[in-house]
Design a protein around this nucleic acid. Structure first.
Lengths: 208, 208
DNA sequence: ACCTGTGAAATCGTTCACAGCA
DNA sequence: TGCTGTGAACGATTTCACAGGT
């Protein structure tokens, strides 16, 4: 068991392992070895063992891992045994699509509020979720106990939005605006930049 | 000038540099040093120089880089001097949102077709883009000269979709389905996995 | 025989520090 | 003096390889 800082690469992979285990569990398997997991899901077995070893000794030598037990452990490690309440800032197409996306997915993330500055949108509901005035973001976050914010506004407003939700006590933010954001160190920002991804594909296509 | 393989991290940063240069250019600046760029956009100056050095010697000692010249160079390197035609598979909320997103963004990526298996959707248009029967994906890709595919279908269909578009000659794929995909080595797949990102935020929130 | 957990080695990426040019 | 381009140092991550447990 490592006590060092856990890399984000490791936590990302934990998500992947959990998915793999869910699949195996549905097939009725009881145990699995890191080698089998690696082969089937195209991972590296040493890496699986190392990642898991950061959090404890979950395996049994000669046997492997008990699937349901390991699922439970990873669920706890990732904090997926607790529900999260999500607020999406920006009720444009992307915000709406994300609202629906998480509405459909059965997960422990629930979208409970949308925010926008556009008077025409405020008060309407999308997939059962109300659109609030962004000016009221702080009070709604408190009232609805929102703990995850999703930024789906144009790039030029993103930093301002981040500052407002931070002031309201949000510690976890997912950013879709194509711009880097400055956050204080106790706020975690994950950025998903579609432009960078597309341009990276373009680079690949441009190679001779 | 390096002749080694270029890391994806480098090409991703090239996108970022290009954005920064566009911003500076709009402000009327003519030249910029790696140090200035680094300070202003919170990057590392040595890394900027190293990244650029992979592709040539674009700078002038004692001066820095000529902004418009460097913009042109990076544009060429990333293949952004050529237009790309995008087909989105899956005309659900996400596919629709992405269609609009790229429709609004003025870029060299144009969404020219949507695909779905749902008879009710086939034939309709979203933001001026027609929804085609997925069975016709190969012929539409050829006819419309589509070179980038976006997978926005449920996870269980994603691998099948990838195989079909690969057969149609697509070499660049952006995948939004929360599942890893197997592609032949001449096809570039970029996956954006919202579930992994959210679960990683959940891990952060779960830390004491 | 099989499999975990883990040091050691290899690989990959970032940052430093400076020679050399304008 | 100011700045680039780059070898060298450093740090992070992945993979190997094997001791040790079942």
């Amino acid at each position: 068991m490592k006590t060092e800082k856990i890399s984000e690469l490791t936590t990302n992979r934990l998500s992947v392992y959990l998915r793999c285990l869910n699949e195996l569990s549905e097939e009725g398997a009881k145990t699995v070895s890191s080698g089998k997991l690696a082969k089937r899901f195209h991972l590296n077995s040493a890496q699986i063992r190392k990642d898991l070893a950061c959090f404890g000794e979950f395996g049994v030598r000669g046997v492997g891992y008990y699937i349901d037990d390991l699922r439970e452990q990873i669920t706890k490690i990732l904090g997926l045994d607790k529900d999260h309440r999500v607020g999406i800032i920006g009720a444009g197409r992307l915000g709406m699509a994300l609202t629906d996306y998480y509405g459909l997915t059965q997960s422990n993330f629930e979208v409970v509020a949308l925010f926008d500055a556009d008077k025409k949108k405020i008060g309407s509901t999308i997939g059962g979720v109300e659109v609030f005035d962004f000016k009221k973001v702080k009070q709604v976050i408190k009232k609805e106990k929102i703990d995850v914010a999703v930024i789906a506004v144009p790039a030029e407003y993103a930093q301002k939005v981040l500052e407002e939700v931070s002031k309201a006590g949000i510690k976890a933010v997912m950013n879709f605006a194509p711009t880097p954001l400055q956050a204080s160190s106790d706020v975690k920002v994950k950025s998903i930049d579609l432009t960078i991804s597309l341009e990276s594909l373009s680079y690949f296509l441009a190679q001779p």
